[in-house]
């Protein structure tokens, strides 16, 4: 029967596409492989349900399609069957939800030794700010934004003087060190999105959001904006370079502090040593 066959083919083709298509997620570069595992688990459970429902349906169409003299069976309900199906579904749901919530708990619990890195989004570019040797970022306010202070840092905050400001350049991160990414926007919603990191979070003007990750392999990764932010949304690009600690510090040495950029030369250029702290 053609209809039953086509229905079945849809399921079979979907499974084959899933197994053999070359389009799958990019190799991960952060500690969030748990997320990938949860997705895989969800694929297995939902895939089984999908195939079972369609196969059952195709069988019914094949077996019970109208022929002369056929009369349908009369069966208003079957409480027992419905309960068993509900319980089975509930078990499947728990099997997906429980690991999901455990991983979410990890995702929202930032480890104490994570270093702050600030990402600032604006139409349509990315800027970055790293703490100076004091390890702390200074405060900021959108009202302070001007051409010499494009990120709106507070010039009176001593913590902010040695902050390293990276504009129109890639962000570098050391491999294997947990990072708390603080997200700030100065105009509209943006979303700092690096596909290889798996994590993402919107940036909201007026508040600071965050997520954390540990980069697990070196390489250069694309940064995209994942929250519609206006006409040039698709062109809002940058790159993250994950590298060994030594190269990272070499890169840091070449950056400018806020004080240097804003012309207040009262704070010396950040002096980084690998042995500091």
């Amino acid at each position: 029967m053609a209809v039953a066959l086509i229905l079945l083919l849809v399921a079979v083709a979907s499974v084959l596409f899933h197994l053999y298509s070359p389009w799958w997620w990019t190799p991960i570069a952060s500690n969030w492989s748990y997320i990938d595992h949860t997705i895989n688990l969800t694929f297995w459970i939902t895939g089984a349900v999908f195939c079972a429902v369609i196969a059952f349906m195709a069988y019914c169409v094949l077996r019970f399609h109208h022929t002369e003299g056929r009369r349908a069976h009369y069966n208003p309900e079957n409480k027992k069957l419905e309960w068993w199906l509900s319980i089975g579904t509930a078990i499947g749901v728990v099997a997906m939800l429980a690991p999901g919530l455990v991983v979410w708990h990890q995702f929202v619990t930032v480890p104490a030794d994570a270093t702050d890195v600030e990402v600032v989004g604006q139409q349509w570019m990315w800027s970055y700010r790293l703490p100076g040797k004091d390890g702390r970022l200074g405060t900021s306010d959108a009202r302070l934004i001007s051409s010499d202070n494009p990120l709106g840092l507070n010039p009176n905050d001593p913590n902010g003087q040695d902050d390293i400001v990276v504009q129109n350049e890639d962000l570098h991160l050391p491999v294997g060190k947990p990072v708390k990414v603080l997200l700030r926007s100065i105009d509209v919603l943006h979303d700092f999105y690096v596909p290889e990191f798996r994590a993402k979070m919107d940036m909201i003007p007026g508040s600071v959001t965050y997520y954390w990750l540990t980069p697990t392999r070196t390489g250069t990764f694309d940064v995209l904006c994942a929250e519609l932010c206006g006409a040039a949304h698709a062109q809002m690009r940058s790159k993250v370079v994950v590298e060994e600690e030594k190269e990272y510090h070499a890169w840091l040495e070449r950056q400018h502090t806020f004080a240097a950029l804003s012309g207040q030369r009262n704070v010396a250029k950040a002096a980084y040593k690998t042995d500091s702290e």
Binding site: V10, T38, I39, V49, M57, V61, Y193, K200
Partner: peptide, 28 residues
């Protein structure tokens, strides 16, 4: 029948997006 297939398919992918941590890489 077409409704059931597409709805089951879309409903099941909803379980991905509804499960908060799975939504993180997939959202947007």
């Amino acid at each position: 029948l077409g409704f059931i297939i597409t709805f089951v398919n879309g409903g099941l992918t909803g379980l991905f997006l509804g499960n908060v941590v799975v939504d993180v890489p997939l959202s947007d």
